[in-house]
């Protein structure tokens, strides 16, 4: 590993609290945007918020937070559109959406255990 390798840069970022928080904030915004495009964006969102974290555990926690934010954002989107009640009344489809929103970022965040 060289001093300028991406892994080394990531390690440096993780040690610096300010840079780590800034990277996490960018990852959250980017992750939310990716999640609106395709479901793989939810995996990427989890990975993005997990990578700046100092440990695998914190990474997965960040992925969980990302999932929670995705779900809250989705519900807010429905609320603004005035369709929250009928969507929740759908039963299985809406539970599936909430489950996917919560779990895919967590799954993506496991990449923190590799990088």
């Amino acid at each position: 590993m060289t001093a300028d390798s991406p892994t080394e840069k990531l390690a440096t970022l993780r040690e610096d609290r300010r840079r780590r928080l800034a990277a996490t904030a960018v990852a959250v915004v980017l992750g939310l945007a990716l999640g609106l495009v395709h479901w793989t964006g939810l995996l990427a969102a989890g990975a993005l918020v997990a990578l700046p974290q100092r440990s695998f555990g914190w990474g997965v926690a960040a992925g969980f937070g990302m999932g929670a934010l995705t779900v809250v954002g989705f519900l807010a989107q429905l609320g603004l559109a005035g369709t929250l009640d009928p969507v929740l009344a759908m039963g299985q489809p809406s539970l599936l959406a909430l489950g996917i929103g919560l779990l895919l970022p967590v799954f993506g965040s496991m990449v923190r255990g590799i990088v």
Partner: peptide
């Protein structure tokens, strides 16, 4: 996933 993922699922276009 294509149909029901929050945000991008095809099903939700009509809701949002």
């Amino acid at each position: 996933l294509d149909r029901f993922a929050p945000g991008s699922g095809r099903v939700w276009g009509a809701a949002t």
